[in-house]
Amino acid sequence: MAASGYRVDAVDLSAVALAKPREAGGTGVTYRQLDVERDGLDDLPHDAYDLITVRLGWAFVRDRTRVLGRLRERLRPGGALCVITPVAGAVPERERGVALDEEEIGLLCAGRESAGRYDADGLALLVLRGPAPAAPVCAGKGRPAAHALTGAGVVVTDAAGRVLPGWSVRGVWELPGGKNEPGEDFAAAAVRELEEETSLKAGPAGARVRAVLMDSVDGMPRVTAAVQVTAFTGEPVVTEPRLIRRWEWREPADLPGLTRPLFTPGAHVLDTVWPGLLPGLPPVHRYPVTRD
């Protein structure tokens, strides 16, 4: 290329690799020892290039996506990045560490205005131009195994500041609340569960998430949102008698004197709204949520 009149920068990590062509002489070539992955590209002899060629070295680059982006930034409009690489499927197994497989080649070619692939004496020669603008895309990794319980516990208070616990068929006092439905946020879950369990109606805008709590039950992580509701309509009634025997408005100051247990997540939710009200609670990780 230099003999054809182009200005050429020859860059390599190895001083030995640069020594022989430098000794051979020739004009129009600038030699520079540089690690393009770790040293950055500010030390390149020129700011912009019409062609950047990576020959037999891409498999040795660890942070390929980042380095690819930095190289692309050094191309002039219409410029091309050429990667010449062995292909894993065409070399002996012992040499596959210096080759790219088809998945890596696909990643290299993705998001380009054009990506040409040619065979060069058994090597893949990739000519990349671009990029092609695209919105970020999200994807899952298949259906996950069940790992944790998530839900909301609701502290609902009336105009007098009294709180509404329920006497459960399981022999504990508990707050309204329950698990999230798929796609449902904590505030929406709190409002839905409140209506389903007590018939009280509240709007999501009036449900304030005060904190996210994390503990465990029977070896499974449990995440509970502490939600406070102060604006609602209706009167509490038992809508699920298989779960709750009755709902009672109670003074918060009376809660430490209950003669029957509080359901642990509900106790942590109450302690979020009234810190220190219930001493001696089991351990919990608490992540307060501040208003915007």
Rank of each mutant, 00 (worst) to 15 (best):
T272I: 10
R291A: 15
V11S: 05
R129K: 14
V169K: 05
V137Q: 14
G106R: 12
R70P: 03
R76I: 02
H268V: 07
T85C: 15
I105K: 08
A88E: 08
V163D: 03
V284E: 02
R260H: 14
R62V: 15
P165F: 04
E184T: 13
L107P: 01
V237K: 11
P221Q: 06
L100R: 00
D12M: 06
L270C: 11
G257A: 15
R94I: 14
W173P: 03
T150H: 09
V87L: 03
A17K: 10
A115T: 06
S168I: 04
K201N: 08
P275M: 11
A152L: 06
E196H: 12
W58H: 08
P256H: 00
T157D: 10
A132L: 15
L71R: 11
L194W: 04
V91I: 04
P182H: 05
I84W: 11
V137I: 07
V11Y: 00
G234E: 03
V191C: 07
L34R: 05
Y287C: 14
I84Y: 08
V137T: 09
L149H: 09
G97C: 10
L278F: 00
G166H: 05
A267M: 04
P204M: 10
E93K: 09
S14N: 13
G178S: 08
L51E: 09
W167F: 02
L108W: 02
G206C: 01
V29L: 10
R246V: 05
L100S: 02
M220H: 06
L41W: 07
T65H: 11
V223N: 04
A187W: 00
Q228N: 02
I52A: 11
T272H: 13
D39L: 14
V98C: 08
H285P: 04
V8E: 08
A187G: 00
R192W: 08
G69L: 06
P275C: 12
G151S: 07
V11H: 01
L213Y: 06
T230G: 02
G266W: 02
P21R: 15
G166A: 06
R245I: 10
L194Y: 03
A226I: 12
D158S: 01
V155C: 03
V127R: 07
E104A: 14
L81N: 02
V137N: 01
V289R: 03
A226L: 10
D218I: 09
I84C: 14
A190H: 00
E113M: 07
D43Q: 12
V154N: 05
K141L: 05
G26P: 01
T53V: 15
A2G: 12
V61L: 00
L126E: 06
P236Q: 09
G40C: 10
G206Q: 06
T30M: 02
A124N: 11
G142W: 13
L125E: 07
